[in-house]
C-alpha cells in the first residue's frame, strides 16, 4: 500500500460519498429546479473524485501511466458536458411549464419572457420560433 494508491482510494471514497449526497438531494428537495441544483454539482464532483482516484489507485498498484491519462480524459469530458445537460434539462423543464416551488422569492425569467412576447406581439405575429 503506497502513497499513490492510498490517495486514489481516499479520492474514490470521497467521490462515492458525493454520489450518495447527490442522490439524497434528489430525494429531499421540493421541486425539480432545486433537485437539479443539488444533484448536478455533487454528481460532477463525485465523478471527478471517483474517476481520477481510480487512475491514481491503478498507477499505485503497478499498472502503466496510461491509466491516469485516460481517466483524466474521461473526467474532463464529464466536467465539460455535465453542466450542459443540466442547463438543457432545466431550460426544458421551465419551458414545459413546471412551476417554481411555493417558497421561491423572485422570477426574473418569467418577466423577461412575458416582456419579449409582448414586444413580439406589438410588432407582428412571429409564430414558430426555434
Amino acid at each position: 500500500m503506497n502513497v499513490l494508491s492510498a490517495t486514489g482510494e481516499a479520492l474514490v471514497l470521497i467521490g462515492t460519498f458525493f454520489y450518495f449526497l447527490s442522490a439524497l438531494g434528489l430525494i429531499r428537495m421540493p421541486d425539480v429546479y432545486n433537485r437539479m441544483q443539488t444533484s448536478t454539482k455533487s454528481a460532477t464532483l463525485g465523478s471527478l473524485g471517483v474517476i481520477i482516484g481510480t487512475g491514481l489507485w491503478a498507477v499505485g498498484m503497478g499498472h502503466s501511466v496510461a491509466w491516469i491519462v485516460q481517466t483524466v480524459v474521461v473526467a474532463t469530458f464529464i466536467l465539460l458536458t455535465n453542466p450542459i445537460s443540466a442547463h438543457a434539462l432545466i431550460r426544458g423543464a421551465y419551458r414545459s411549464g413546471i412551476p417554481l416551488w411555493n417558497g421561491s422569492v423572485v422570477d426574473k425569467y418569467g418577466e423577461h419572457l412575458e416582456a419579449k412576447a409582448e414586444a413580439a406581439e406589438n410588432e407582428k405575429d412571429e409564430g414558430d420560433g426555434e
Partner: peptide, 18 residues
C-alpha cells in the same frame, strides 16, 4: 450543497435572478 442537503430544516430560498 452538503450543508443544505444534510441540514434537517432544509435552508433554501430559491429564485431566478437576472
Amino acid at each position: 450543497v452538503a450543508y443544505r442537503v444534510l441540514h434537517p430544516k432544509r435552508p433554501i430560498r430559491p429564485g431566478i435572478v437576472h
